[in-house]
Structures are given as structure tokens and as C-alpha cells.
Simulated assay, not measured.
Amino acid sequence: MKRLALSGALALLAAPAMAHTGHGAEGLAHGLAHPFLGADHLLAMVAVGLWSGLVLPRRVWAGAAAFMTAMITGAALGFAGAALPMAEGMIALSVIVFGLLVVMARRGQPRALTAVSLAAIAAFGTAHGYAHAVEATGSAAAYVAGFLIASAVLHASGILAARALVTGRLAQILAGGAVVAAGALLVAG
């Protein structure tokens, strides 16, 4: 039991392996490009848009707002030098969770389920924002503005896709399932 506790404590203290290194993370252009070039971010944001469009027809931007607000919080933590253990793992896991949310999405689903889903979206959004911040160099404000703009575009594309899926339950399941499968590949890789 002592070894397990020690192993867990050491794992939390270890520096994270960053899967996002090796690409530009400076200024507006890189902030705009990264969400489109990083499969994890692209899949997660489109899936949040899909979920929002399927579940929240009147408050369609609620999922995106929860995600992007949490991204700002995560970015602030990263810029402040705070540690967010296992942020990369949380990002990969977010793709699976968001895909499952798309598969299970229903208009008129219980409010409690919607609230839990929005809380999960926000929690994972924090990890995404944190990852963006710790990789940023140069003009952090411009980089954050870029990834927020790109995120809004990806959320909007998911919302528009959800509008096309409204009458197609099979298409919704296939879309969500494809996101889950891609997330599983990210977790395994």
C-alpha cells in the first residue's frame, strides 16, 4: 500500500509529457492555426458544437461558452505557472467523453444531465486552455485571441453540422462514434 501511495504521489509531481510541443505557439497566426492542426482540439471543439446543437436548440452557444470560458481559466493557470497534472491525458480523454455526449444527445434531455455535461465540457476546456498557455511563447494575448477565435469557428461548424443531423439519429450515432474512436486512438497513442 505504501508503494502505491508513493507511486501516486510521484506521478503527480512529475512534469507532464507535452504532446503539443514542436510547433509554433507564438502570436495570433499560431493561435488561429493550432486548433485546426491539432486533432485533439479540432475533434473536441467540433464535438462540443455538435452536442450543443443537438441538445440546446435555444441556447446553442452554451456548450461553446462553457468550453471557451474554461479555456481562458486554464490559460490563466498556465500563464501563472500553476501545475495541472495530467492535462494532456485529460485532453485526449475529452475527445472520448465529448464523442459519447454526441452519441447520447437528445433534445429535451433531463436538465441535470445537461448541467453535468456542461460541467464536464468546462472541466475539459480548462485542460485545453492550460495546454495552449504552457506552449505559448511571444505575444501570449495574441495567441490566446487566436485560439479563442479558431475555437469559436470550430464550435460553430459543429453546431451547423448538428442542424443537419437533427433528423438523422443514425448519422448522430456515427458522428459521435467516430469521435469516440478517434479519441481512443489519441489515448492509446
Rank of each mutant, 00 (worst) to 15 (best):
L186R: 06
G8V: 11
A184C: 09
A112Q: 08
H23G: 11
V166M: 11
L113V: 08
G158Q: 01
M104S: 07
P85K: 05
V180I: 07
T73W: 02
A66F: 08
H23V: 13
A47W: 06
A112L: 13
K2N: 14
A127G: 05
A83L: 02
L37R: 15
Q109D: 08
I159A: 11
E88V: 13
M45A: 08
G74W: 00
A87S: 11
A112G: 10
A105R: 00
G189E: 03
S7P: 11
T21S: 11
S52K: 08
S151C: 00
A75Y: 13
G183W: 01
R106I: 02
S139C: 14
F36T: 01
A65W: 06
V179I: 09
G81Y: 06
F147Y: 14
A47E: 04
W51L: 12
R106L: 10
A178E: 00
P57N: 05
A142C: 12
A70Y: 01
T73Y: 05
I149A: 13
H20F: 05
G8A: 15
A175Q: 03
G24W: 01
M86E: 14
S52G: 15
I149S: 03
H23T: 11
V144A: 15
A133R: 00
A152H: 03
A33G: 10
G89M: 06
A181Q: 05
A82T: 10
Y143C: 12
M104T: 10
A33T: 01
L165M: 06
L165V: 01
A140G: 14
G189C: 00
R107Y: 02
F98K: 07
L77Y: 09
P110V: 03
T73S: 08
T167P: 04
A112I: 12
A11E: 10
L28G: 09
G49R: 08
H155A: 08
A76L: 13
L101P: 02
P85I: 06
L170E: 01
G89R: 12
M18I: 09
A188H: 06
A15R: 10
M90V: 07
A14L: 12
P35W: 04
E88G: 06
G146F: 02
A65K: 01
F67N: 11
L170C: 02
H132R: 07
G108F: 04
K2T: 14
H41P: 01
A105P: 02
A64F: 01
R169P: 08
A152F: 07
G108A: 02
G189P: 00
L118E: 07
A17I: 11
L101E: 04
L54R: 00
L154W: 01
M1L: 08
L56I: 12
